[in-house]
């Protein structure tokens, strides 16, 4: 590609908005994803995504009733509300035991999609109206959408990074967190809410069906190489921005769907990263893997004396 082509791409307002959206999503989603993976709730984003679809349709329905123009003005607020409520329900059910948490997630998957399809019909739309939410349509991101995304992403970043250690603690060892008097339920609900907001931020870029991929796959890539939680999070975020921007740029010159491109790219990066891991991984800091054992010598001497 020539320099002129790049300048042309960057001067397109549509592309500017899309790039900003991609960077926001690429940076925030993996941060929340790192906590979710650590908490063994990698699929939570999917559950929330499905519920958010009902929220989109609900927003649409209210928009139709209120004669708003365009009808889907309230789609994102609707998605935010449904996602937050859904995530808190998932979290509270999970608290009661893991198997039923699994089941709750499954119910949300089906209920969310079915509810969305039903409500959109009631609202006078068609299933096609939902497609852009299901699979993302970054090219239709409006300035209003973008402001929503900026605000939500900022909130996710501030809370997620500000409460990083507390969210780490509750995700790493919930029992210890409870035995330390930490408000574990509130922290878990905070994390669930962050996940819900992330889903709605990422919805326009990769679509609700693929939203979880941009939260989880960069983390999967990062954890192949990173040796600490903090580094995993930073590396996942950087990876997320990279694949989102590269994927988006690819769709500028090729007629391919951005959301799917970004996700396929991320998975390709994962495959390559996993393949190269044995060769590339930084060697473990050079020290004897066995802790120094001067005491052994002492014990042995004592034994011989006996």
């Amino acid at each position: 590609m020539s320099w002129d082509a790049v300048v042309e791409m960057l001067s397109s307002p549509l592309m500017q908005r899309a790039l900003l959206a991609a960077i926001l999503v690429g940076a925030t989603a993996p941060i929340v994803g790192t906590f979710l993976v650590q908490r063994r709730m990698a699929l939570m984003g999917d559950g929330i995504g499905h519920v958010a679809l009902t929220g989109v349709a609900l927003g649409w329905l209210i928009g139709t009733w209120a004669d708003l123009v365009p009808q889907d003005t309230l789609a994102i607020p609707g998605a935010v509300v449904a996602a937050v409520v859904g995530s808190i329900v998932i979290e509270l059910v999970r608290e009661r035991g893991r198997t039923s948490g699994d089941l709750a997630l499954a119910l949300m998957f089906y209920g969310g999609i079915a509810g969305g399809v039903l409500l959109i019909k009631v609202a006078g739309g068609t299933n096609a109206s939902l497609v852009s939410y299901l699979f993302g349509s970054i090219s239709t991101v409006s300035t209003t959408d973008l402001w929503w995304m900026v605000a939500l992403a900022a909130l996710v970043l501030v809370v997620g990074i500000g409460l990083r250690v507390a969210l780490f603690t509750v995700s790493h060892d919930e029992e210890f967190a409870r035995a330390s008097g930490l408000p574990t339920r509130w922290l878990a609900i905070t994390l669930a809410t962050l996940a819900a907001l992330t889903v709605t931020v990422a919805m326009r870029v990769v679509g609700l069906l693929l939203v979880s991929a941009i939260m989880i796959v960069p983390v999967a890539i990062a954890q192949l190489y990173a040796r600490s939680f903090g580094r995993t999070m930073v590396a996942a975020s950087v990876t997320g921005v990279s694949v989102s921007v590269v994927g988006l740029v690819l769709t500028y010159w090729n007629d391919i769907p951005p959301g799917a491109t970004i996700v396929v790219l991320a998975i390709a990066v994962y495959a390559v990263a996993a393949g190269l891991r044995p060769a590339l991984r930084r060697p473990v800091p050079a020290h004897d893997p066995h802790p120094d054992l001067p005491d052994d010598v002492v014990l042995a001497r004592e034994d011989t004396r006996d």
Binding site: V37, V165, F168, H172, D173
Partner: peptide, 15 residues
């Protein structure tokens, strides 16, 4: 859980 955590990170959670 698959996400690495260093000794420093785990001990810091005790604070």
């Amino acid at each position: 859980s698959g996400v690495s955590a260093t000794a420093v990170e785990v001990v810091a959670s005790g604070l």
